[in-house]
Nucleic acid binder design. Structure first.
Lengths: 253, 253
DNA sequence: CGGTTCATTGAGGGGGTTCAACGAAAGTGG
DNA sequence: CCACTTTCGTTGAACCCCCTCAATGAACCG
């Protein structure tokens, strides 16, 4: 993501799970080469999604999961009075649509924050294949479970942390996910606006901006527009770990 | 739950999925009678968990999912400085442990808020069985997906609603889940304390208490200790729907 | 009955929102 | 190339919801 070279290099490659550099993050994890071939056949539907385009919308009938090959997506919902609520940001190797399996309809809107490429995985085919390939079934379970864990982390942030802590958790999470994908863990490009970050973290864009400024003043990060450098990883982790949770109070059973 | 008669009646019955009145909520959904028998054989491990007892603890090795037959459980985590963070309340028919599938270890503590009965479902057996029974596999996917949806609702509350709205969503969610289980949707017994509710909703127990009082003054609910009656369902839904989200503001793109 | 836990209510303070102004960067059309 | 416009980010000041601290009351239990 945020790397034109990366995009171009990917476009030139034959796009197959077996040759995909995301196979250690995506559905193929734990599969034998011959199984990956079968998987490849099932999800040979590739698509390009340009910045600002929607991959699907809340209410659409669910037929497929979508794996991100490159780019970044924002998942969000619109509440009763039309205001947006960001539910997460998704990176290469992530699967989108997991919340729709149960109901048969997408619950959220998915929009590309950068020019992106995705792989469409028809879910009925995936289920069929999982019936024959135990390791694929296990991986589907793992992926669903991981999404639950990720959501719990967001709930934890929103439920018990102050602005500083939330931003620290957000940055560390992003950093770790980027690192797992082979990007630098300290030099991040933010594909989302301050408003989108704040919306996800349950605060206003002004608060995000102010908190960025404070973290910069404290020497933990350096921000220049949408390029953010983590300068004091342990310090950030300290913020994310314990400090700043629920108004400095120490009470509780 | 919260009904001694219910517990006693259950104890007398032969405890099998095929005769369980939760089979429309739990793992057996969509299974043929003969498949249910196989499922029954796989999870014949029943347990009693008394109020305050832990079913498992964060960090424990994950081997089984746990289905609630009767009672109520609280799932929570302890953060760095030992403070509690409630991640959810689970009712009969719900499955616990879904977040542990990916990592092999439980991420949360599970404690009974009432004297409860659970069914243990060894996950390796479940996976094996799902390999043979497509409808069971589909149900496992559905259950995992439903947990994701439930978590998204919690994120939505925490991220964009004020105390009143959060409490309204909480009560309506509880009401609907109780109704699906055959209980009254308007007359609820709260198995959890104000502090636990507040912790889950990202607010202090005093705020929960004050907000209950306000909702009561407005004629939406009636509260007597841990018995809560919903008196104006549409009014509550109005609160949960749009009102009270992010400081009364109407701006935004 | 005294001790503990839980719930309610009040008063004061703080973190974040709201409203507002300003600046920087990017895109547009002449 | 430069006004013009638009979008995005930053910063300041006032207000408000909720937290904190505190006191009181009700129910449960040994």
């Amino acid at each position: 993501m945020h790397d034109a070279q990366f995009l171009k290099r990917e476009a030139r490659l034959k796009i197959a799970c077996s040759s995909c550099n995301l196979r250690q993050l995506c559905l193929p994890v734990g599969l034998d080469p011959e199984d990956i071939e079968q998987l490849d056949a099932a999800l040979n539907l590739r698509q390009r999604v340009q910045t600002g385009q929607h991959l699907y919308r809340a209410g659409d009938i669910f037929r497929s999961l979508y794996a991100i090959r490159s780019g970044v997506f924002k998942l969000y919902r619109l509440n009763a009075d039309g205001r947006e609520q960001v539910m997460g940001f998704y990176l290469p190797g992530d699967l989108m649509g997991l919340g729709a399996i149960g109901t048969g309809r997408f619950a959220l809107h998915a929009v590309a924050l950068e020019d992106s490429h995705i792989c469409e995985a028809p879910f009925s085919l995936l289920e069929e294949l999982a019936q024959k390939i135990p390791s694929l079934q296990r991986q589907i379970h793992r992926v669903l479970s991981a999404e639950i864990l990720q959501d719990w982390q967001a709930m934890m942030m929103l439920g018990s942390m102050l602005a500083e802590g939330r931003l620290a958790v957000f940055l560390l999470d992003l950093s770790e996910r980027l690192q797992r994908r082979g990007f630098s863990p300290t030099h991040l490009h933010l594909s989302m606006s301050r408003e989108e970050i704040g919306n996800y973290l349950g605060m206003k864009l002004e608060t995000v901006s102010r908190t960025f400024s404070k973290l910069q003043k404290d020497g933990l990060i350096a921000v220049d527009r949408r390029v953010l450098t983590i300068q004091d990883m342990p310090g950030l982790k300290r913020l994310a770990g314990c400090a700043g949770e629920s108004h400095l109070g120490m009470a509780e059973a």
